[in-house]
C-alpha cells in the first residue's frame, strides 16, 4: 500500500526546515543583493514538493501556511497590493516605496514597503506554484492507487 521511500521520508523532516530557512534568507537578502521574493518563493515551493513526494500531497498541503495553497496566495497578493498604499497617502504615485531605518541598541533594522511587497510575492509564489505542483502530484498518486478516484 505505502510505496514511499523510508530514507526520503526521514531526511525530508530536517531538509524541509533547512530549505524553508534558506528561502527566508534569500528573501531577506534581496534587500541589497541578488535574491528576493520570487526566488525565495520558488525555494519554498521546492520544500513543499519534497514533503509531497515523501509524505503525500495531503500532508504537504497541511504544512503550508494556514493549511491550504490558496491562503498564502491570497494573503501575498493583498500584501503586495497594500505595499503601494503608503506612497499614495503621502500624495505620490501608487507603489512609490518608503524605507525606514530603525536603530536599536547596536543593531540597525532596515524596514521598507519594498520588503512588504517582496514578502507578498514570496507568499503568492509559494501558494500558487505549490498548489499547481501538489495538484499534479495528486494525479500521480491516484494512478498509483489504481485509476482515477
Amino acid at each position: 500500500m505505502n510505496s514511499r521511500i523510508v530514507i526520503l521520508a526521514v531526511v525530508a523532516r530536517p531538509l524541509y526546515l533547512v530549505i524553508l530557512l534558506a528561502s527566508l534568507w534569500v528573501l531577506l537578502r534581496g534587500h541589497n543583493e541578488p535574491g528576493g521574493g520570487f526566488i525565495g518563493g520558488l525555494m519554498a515551493v521546492s520544500a513543499t514538493i519534497l514533503w509531497g513526494v515523501a509524505h503525500g500531497t495531503t500532508a504537504a498541503r497541511a504544512r503550508l501556511p494556514l493549511g491550504d495553497a490558496v491562503w498564502p496566495a491570497v494573503i501575498g497578493l493583498l500584501l503586495a497590493a497594500i505595499s503601494g498604499v503608503p506612497g499614495l497617502l503621502d500624495g505620490e504615485a501608487y507603489l512609490t516605496h518608503r524605507a525606514w531605518t530603525l536603530a536599536f541598541v547596536s543593531v540597525e533594522l532596515k524596514l521598507s514597503t519594498v520588503l512588504l511587497f517582496d514578502i507578498g510575492v514570496y507568499l503568492a509564489v509559494w501558494g500558487a506554484l505549490a498548489g499547481y505542483a501538489l495538484a499534479l502530484l495528486a494525479v500521480d498518486e491516484q494512478e498509483q492507487e489504481g485509476g482515477p478516484a
Partner: peptide
C-alpha cells in the same frame, strides 16, 4: 512558467 504548468496539468487531465 505558469502557462507551461497549466498546459501540462490540462494535457494530463
Amino acid at each position: 512558467f505558469a502557462l507551461v504548468c497549466f498546459s501540462l496539468a490540462l494535457v494530463l487531465g
